[in-house]
Design a protein around this nucleic acid. Sequence first.
DNA 1: TTGTTTTATGAACAAGTGTACCATAACAAT
DNA 2: ATTGTTATGGTACACTTGTTCATAAAACAA
Lengths: 208, 208
Amino acid sequence: MRQPGYSKTRESIYAYIRKFFKNRGYAPTVRDILKGCSISSTAVVQHHLNVLDREGRIHRDPEVFRSIRLTDRKDTDGVPLLGTIAAGEPIPVPTSDTWQSQALETIELPEELTQGKQLYALRVKGLSMVDALIDDGDIVLMEPVNTAENGDMVAVWLKNEQEVTLKRFFLEEGKVCLRPANQGMQPIYQDPENVEVQGKVTAVIRKL
Amino acid sequence: MRQPGYSKTRESIYAYIRKFFKNRGYAPTVRDILKGCSISSTAVVQHHLNVLDREGRIHRDPEVFRSIRLTDRKDTDGVPLLGTIAAGEPIPVPTSDTWQSQALETIELPEELTQGKQLYALRVKGLSMVDALIDDGDIVLMEPVNTAENGDMVAVWLKNEQEVTLKRFFLEEGKVCLRPANQGMQPIYQDPENVEVQGKVTAVIRKL
DNA sequence: TTGTTTTATGAACAAGTGTACCATAACAAT
DNA sequence: ATTGTTATGGTACACTTGTTCATAAAACAA
């Protein structure tokens, strides 16, 4: 009853590696696995590790001790919380390369949310953005861009009104149309001269 | 100009360890650090690693190769996405111990959001919860509880109306008061008999 | 049966690696 | 100046560890 590509010993080795990572935080050695799986020869472990590597379930650097990595292990990025965003105030836009040092705190987020981009986070102050379905205390993830494409949710600074707002951005016949996320509400039409895109909202996080 | 507790060499070692982890996915050895930081003796590295360990910035297992771990490295929990939540349908409440297997997909979230609890996630379908500032497509993180405390944002099943809704829960003089998160909207008063708490919302995530 | 592939065994080598020991230097406090 | 603490250098030991090799058993297909 031998299935192609399946081996009980191999699965126990894989399980042991996962367990070892969870318990100790780093990779086991060939001999750790040998003891942990009651195998009598390092060559057996070696062989199965080669197969697991070929299958893509683990990665290994040749001749490097404890270099096993699990391929499905997702990493997190640290996103700096740079300040608050409120109706009457311009948002803190990161300028230099020294973001991290200005951070009030750092939020660890999975790459699934950051997509590897260099983002920053702002805490929303006040209820001025309920139109965008954003509550007081919410955290918005911002991508630092100066331009926007149609449909993007952006933070814009309205020069004349001297205020910042979160809206969906559309360019229509030379006019900028800012639509609230709440579709029951009316869009605002603005002259492009009055609109300064400060950043693009990539995610909203609300902790309760 | 020597500050207590500060050493340029030590900081360069710490930075190198971070870099090494980012590039290779596992810890450097004493001699990796030696070369990477242009230090001429392993004893120097050893000494600074001891200090970093004592300071709590790294952890090490004695006599184990490549056992350095960064202490600020936060882990993630896999939260199963169990289905959708919509106005007219009861939400899928996990019953048995076999959540994970029923998951459509798994979302990796930092412990900061899950707080180590066994949560599940639902994707919001439709615009029926804009009152709670929740948009179509949002993901809500649910804690499986049958009771609620005043102020909790809960998913409740209204038996007579045959619908589920997300509201803030308050018990007032024998009546259940369900308040929309959007404070401009009117609360709903219900007989406790008609209200079935299905779960507590612990977070909302919106990807754009 | 025969042949092929996978898995297992035992041993050994060479290099990697944490640690200990001793000596020296830099700096602060007394 | 003296003393104590911390940082640095150089070296060597003993153990860990990935790898290889020859051999054999087991599983599977023809």
